[in-house]
Design a protein around this nucleic acid. Structure first.
Lengths: 154, 154
DNA sequence: GCAATCTAGTTTCATCATGCAACTAAGGAG
DNA sequence: CTCCTTAGTTGCATGATGAAACTAGATTGC
């Protein structure tokens, strides 16, 4: 087998996420969907990507439960693609990618938009990692533990 | 040109991040680096990837300023790959991917590890988006604004 | 000091994925 | 009924990926 390696059976949750999101287009499609884009043609024109690739990605995202198809809301007989809760759950990932670019990009002047709190128009605060009790954590303050087996009584 | 589209000139910071991180292996290499992996052979054996691909990815990550090469710390004449601050700055992205998988994966029992606060051994809190004043924000509470032009006097 | 081995790659070649362009079939507009 | 739009699929050229073989310099054993 020379095909692209799949992370589907991998036990690492990061690899498992990448299995669904880790190609060049999926996260950008989700970004558009979060902006309210629903129709095939609108994804295609806004992202400027080839239609066959878009069709393949949409199918993959539906298969992974990130998008779902529904009859078009404008009354036409076409369908639209809507984010599921799992799809909306990717929002922190997109925010993390955005903030990383804002902080470390070599040409930040080329970044066109900033994410702001709608009520105040002020930038969203940097994502931070905290312990259950609220202490701010750095990478070095964390470690990995084996996942505890699920108890039957729970 | 039929080559893979590049997001390098794109004005969206998410696309720009994906330019550096958006392939199948880069984030996993960074994950290992965060665990302290530094040497070519150790990346290769832990990730189980082809050596030519690993060499290409390491070169790309160095080019993007995410890794830097340094003489090996064990005194040998080989070199090692160390995360730069920009590389360590990807940690929230990895945490976001991990938490998304933990929350939405269809087979969570296959996930082997959980990320915990080292001091208490308790799971890290979910990343949350907050306004400058600390208010918790949902995706709908945010919007995009054009980036303000940088003032010269600043 | 020299042969054997290890490390960190590069090269080769087969296969897969991506992307453009052309094609198609069902819907809608007039 | 005819034309245009939407949402795809198909074909083909090219780039990316991966397994395996190869290589050069570093290290180790003796």
């Amino acid at each position: 087998m020379v095909k692209r390696t799949s992370f589907e059976g991998d036990s690492c949750p990061i690899a498992r996420s990448l299995e669904a999101l880790g190609d060049w287009w999926s996260l950008l499609i989700i970004r558009e969907a979060l902006f309210g884009v629903r129709r095939f043609g609108e994804f295609q024109s806004r992202l400027g990507m080839a239609k066959n690739i878009l069709a393949a990605r949409l199918r993959s995202l539906v298969d992974h439960g990130i998008l779902a198809t529904a009859p078009a809301s404008d009354g036409s007989a076409y369908q639209e693609y809507l984010l599921t809760p799992k799809g909306r759950g990717t929002f922190p990932i997109l925010v993390a990618l955005r903030q990383w670019s804002e902080e470390f990009d070599d040409h930040p002047e080329e970044i066109a938009t900033i994410l702001v709190d709608r009520a105040r128009g002020r930038p969203v605060k940097k994502l931070e990692m905290r312990a259950e009790d609220g202490r701010l954590l750095s990478p070095a303050d964390t470690t990995l533990k084996p996942r505890p087996a699920r108890r039957r009584s729970a």
